[in-house]
């Protein structure tokens, strides 16, 4: 088992765990954590593949940097939506309908 294969298996474990919890967990906050763990798993695949050569592949490192920033953007929006949804659920009258509150 080479180092590369070992880290690919670690990435597979992270992805497997995170994707299952992302689908099954009921608490949205745990699902947001699962997003970050799944993101780390996919980035581990990239970095492990980059480490196959001695000067590691800079293109893959640049892709991973892009992946990290995109994950933080999605997590930020997810957390704010979670906070607003919980506030709306807790005090429906007060600020539930920030927009004009169309809904089925």
């Amino acid at each position: 088992m080479s180092t590369l294969e070992w880290y690919l298996w670690v990435a597979a474990a992270l992805l497997g765990l995170a994707c299952v919890r992302l689908l099954l967990a009921r608490d949205p906050l745990v699902r947001l954590i699962a997003i970050n763990v799944a993101g780390s798993g996919s980035l581990l695949v990239l970095v492990a593949l980059a480490a196959r050569t001695d000067p590691p592949d800079p293109v893959l490192h640049a892709l991973v940097l892009t992946g990290i920033v995109i994950t933080v953007a999605f997590t930020g929006v997810g957390l704010v939506l979670l906070r607003r949804a919980e506030e709306a659920a807790e005090a429906p009258g007060e600020d539930g309908a920030a927009g004009n509150g169309e809904g089925p």
Partner: peptide
Amino acid sequence: ALGGGPAWGPALRYLFVAVLGSTLLLVAVA
């Protein structure tokens, strides 16, 4: 999410689906 209160829940679910899809696509690209 512009749909106001009732849209925040569905928007969050849409976000989860979009990110899961993107993560798997990134792995395939890798």
